[in-house]
Design a binder for these strands. Structure first.
Length: 805
DNA sequence: AGCACGCCGACT
DNA sequence: GTCGGCGTGCTC
């Protein structure tokens, strides 16, 4: 029986990023297990924090007095052996704190909330009691400690024993319960009771008869009253008479409870799909940790391959994990998977409430769900005995988390595949260069789907040179050919989709007299105009202000907005095509829960002719009547200072092109661009992924970028620009001699957006092929800079960053 | 992170 | 003299 526990405490700092040793109180010794949450005293005061038990021993390696665990929060571990191992690996590979990693794997409600409280003691004088507590015995420190004078007063009272400081560690997890009805009498007694109710009491008679059918089982009151048509009032009076008892029964919050989902059958596979499924199934059965790259154009039936391979994993008694990008996790997608696997499916995505996420997580943990579908963080789903991991649209940048722990779901998936000894399927029409290059080298097995399931050819793509258009016509978002095509679709009662590439683009306010651009007072970027709220907003810090009527700089009235937002495009289109029914889909119109789905349903029913949207419309939507896709500005992302700009542009254009002509009717795509000869646009025009891959690989080779080099980004930020810059140069001096000479260091440079939220950002990028001591060097760097970090300097390390700006 | 300790300036 | 400002070190 273990007497001592090693605990990772909820104090995310470099110094506390290691286990602390605690005594286990005798009463808990047989129950505490690694992976359980505990509450422990930490520090010299009375502070208490939550922690995770990571190890049990009988001997302390700590030479000093041990404190004892205060409370054990869980009855069973919330992190199993795999999750604990994953925590350690994740912390080490992303340079994040272990506690941060552990918390990332669990639903948000399992994170503790802390409240510092003051409690009355037996020494509390009436005056203090009156001033602080009133009738209560405790009060939150924050509500009383209003200013520094009060804080010192409170400290004096604490020293005098007038008040006691206490840390309340709050568990946010709430289980949802529903009242359930249970018969309190035996069947014989119920029968007797039926004869004793007064004549005409039909409700009571119905209740007794209903209770008799329960056979001692419980049934939620809601269903009970509906099924037997007895009112809640009757049930309550039955409870008073002692016929029944009502108990609170735990229920899961089921986000899809109200949607009725049609069961679907596996579709017939074509030859290529068959080959793919067979290979994956062979790997599942072996089992082998093969990583497959499933490459197939839109409409080639990748999803069906996933579903049939997952079915094989279930058939082998194993579980399956399917990751999809957040924006592809639409109700249609969920319906498709649930239709195939029914109640075995748990869904995890950001649209769920915290309670719903918690319940889905517990269903998985208890083994009640064998299939998990979810976005990035679902890669940590507590499935055991995984037989297959699928990652759809593996090139999507949303798989990389932007804040600590800065992990890529693909890396986690590969780690779990090794742990469970199961295959991984990475699917995409436009694989990331890293993945495709690994397939080329034979590290991954490549499976190719060349044919579209419906045998439709890919749509024709026309490139429109906007430079020429601008010379011939007045300034407009719509070129003549696109407008003609839109008109034509209207006449033929076919639908069109227009995409506005928002990346690197927005509408801002500019003074036509002096050129003044309205900027955010906290960040280094222009404020974006929002017509719906009639405000100027900063997309980085959320700052909001009124739209200026006169220029703050020269007081001219010639201050107008520039650039293009979806709203402005919509407005212009309504002018040009007054008869068209238009739907706009962007962050503003889809913010409300379910709004996204509603707009798509309207469009799908044919209640609109044109759908205007941002990147979010490029993915997954599949409407047979769409025969025209227009990209209004293909090249805004090309101007970004990022070596992946071409890759993103190519992927986006290829994806959006796939939206045209998915059924019987042929589709056409119009791409408006100022760079008609750019290779990313040319290869997208010809649906030529292979061509793009070869060309881009040459570019990466020349520039020394991934996948030829590994990269690490180091960022420093401070309120004082000079401090950030100086520290960054010191880091460079410190790092250079510790790294191999062949490692390249780019920078330090100010970030393209140098100031965000009043902080100044500087970055440095390491490019290397082999750097054996990199991990230890970078951890030392973090250790050595912790004193500066206290003083307000923030340093972060991003391994294989996706965004270089 | 949050707390105690310790060292300096300005006041009951 | 002391109260309280902040820089520094430590938390099993």
């Amino acid at each position: 029986m273990a007497q001592i526990a090693q605990v990772i405490v909820d104090v995310p700092t470099m110094q506390t990023n290691r286990p602390y040793t605690y005594l286990i109180p005798a009463a808990w010794q047989s129950q505490v297990q690694p992976g359980m949450r505990v509450i422990v005293p930490f520090g010299r005061g009375k502070r208490r924090v939550q922690g995770f038990v990571v190890n049990l021993t009988n001997q302390s390696t700590f030479d000093g007095d041990l404190k004892a665990i205060d409370t054990v929060v869980d009855l069973a571990p919330v992190l199993n052996t795999e999750a604990l191992a994953m925590t350690a690996w994740l912390a080490q590979s992303t340079f994040a704190f272990q506690i941060t990693c552990a918390q990332t794997m669990l639903p948000a409600v399992m994170r503790a909330k802390y409240e510092k409280q003051l409690r009355a003691t037996d020494k509390t004088s009436p005056a203090v009691r009156e001033k602080l507590f009133g009738d209560a015995s405790s009060v939150s420190f924050e509500t009383v400690a209003t200013d520094s004078q009060m804080v010192s007063q409170l400290m004096r009272w604490q020293k005098a024993g007038e008040v006691d400081v206490y840390y309340q560690v709050k568990n946010q997890a709430r289980r949802k319960t529903q009242l359930a009805v249970k018969a309190a009498l035996t069947p014989a007694e119920l029968a007797t009771a039926q004869t004793t109710v007064r004549a005409g009491a039909t409700q009571q008679l119905a209740l007794l008869k209903a209770l008799a059918t329960l056979n001692g089982e419980t049934l939620t009151q809601k269903i009970f009253s509906r099924r037997f048509n007895v009112s809640d009032a009757t049930i309550r009076s039955g409870e008073k008479k002692g016929w029944l008892t009502r108990v609170a029964e735990e229920v899961y919050r089921d986000p899809y409870a109200d949607s009725d989902i049609q069961a679907t059958k596996p579709l017939t596979l074509n030859d290529e799909q068959r080959v793919a499924v067979d290979q994956i199934v062979t790997a599942i059965d072996a089992p082998a940790t093969t990583t497959f790259l499933l490459e197939g154009v839109t409409g080639s039936g990748k999803t069906e391959v996933y579903l049939q391979a997952m079915a094989a994993a279930l058939k082998a008694g194993k579980t399956a994990l399917m990751l999809v990008p957040e924006i592809s996790l639409t109700p249609q997608m969920v319906r498709r998977v649930k239709g195939r696997f029914g109640h075995a499916v748990a869904v995890l995505h950001s649209g769920l409430s915290n309670g719903e996420k918690y319940d889905e997580w517990r269903r998985i943990q208890r083994g009640e769900a064998q299939v998990v579908v979810g976005a990035r963080s679902a890669v940590f789903a507590p499935l055991t005995n995984i037989g297959l991991i699928v990652m759809d649209e593996e090139h999507e940048s949303s798989y990389k988390q932007d804040d600590a722990p800065r992990y890529h779901a693909r890396q986690v998936a590969l780690w779990r595949s090794r742990y469970h000894h199961c295959p991984v399927v990475l699917g995409s029409a436009t694989p990331s260069l890293e993945t495709r290059a690994r397939a080329e080298k034979g590290v991954y097995s490549r499976l190719v789907l060349k044919d579209r399931v419906n045998q439709r050819p890919l749509p024709a793509v026309s490139i429109i040179d906007m430079k020429k258009e601008m010379q011939q016509h007045a300034e407009s978002n719509f070129s003549a050919p696109l407008l003609v095509a839109l008109q034509d679709r209207l006449e033929r009662h076919e639908q069109s989709v227009l995409m506005l590439n928002r990346r690197g683009y927005s509408s801002f306010v500019l003074c036509r007299d002096c050129g003044f651009v309205l900027k955010c007072p906290n960040c280094d970027i222009s404020l974006t105009l929002h017509m719906d709220t009639h405000t100027m907003k900063c997309h980085y810090c959320g700052h909001e202000e009124a739209i200026p009527r006169i220029c703050p700089n020269c007081h001219s009235r010639q201050i107008r907005y520039y650039g293009t937002g979806t709203e402005k495009v919509e407005e212009e289109l309504r002018d040009l095509l007054p008869d068209a029914r238009i739907i706009r889909m962007d962050n503003d119109t889809t913010r409300k829960k379910g709004a996204h789905e509603k707009l798509l349903a309207t469009f799908g029913r044919g209640d609109a002719d044109i759908l205007i949207g941002t990147q979010m419309i490029a993915k997954g939507l599949d409407f047979p009547n769409v025969t025209l896709v227009g990209v209004l500005n293909a090249d805004t992302a090309l101007g970004l200072p990022d070596f992946r700009a071409s890759e993103w542009t190519f992927q986006l254009l290829t994806q959006v092109s796939g939206r045209a002509g998915r059924a019987e009717k042929a589709g056409h795509v119009y791409i408006q661009t100022f760079n008609p000869d750019h290779y990313a646009i040319r290869f997208a025009q010809h649906h030529d992924y292979e061509g793009f891959f070869k060309y881009e690989m040459r570019m990466r080779h020349q520039g020394g970028y991934p996948p030829y080099y590994f990269t690490v980004q180091i960022t420093a930020s401070d309120l004082d620009e000079a401090v950030a810059a100086k520290r960054m140069y010191q880091l460079l001096q410190w790092l250079r001699p510790r790294l191999t000479p062949s490692t390249l260091i780019l920078g330090p440079t100010p970030k393209p957006i140098a100031r965000v939220n009043r902080r100044y950002y500087y970055q440095m990028v390491l490019k290397y092929k082999r750097e054996p001591n990199l991990a230890s060097t970078l951890s030392t760097l973090l250790q050595e800079t912790q004193v500066q970090q206290r003083q307000g300097l923030q340093i972060s390390i991003d391994v294989e960053p996706l965004h270089f700006m």
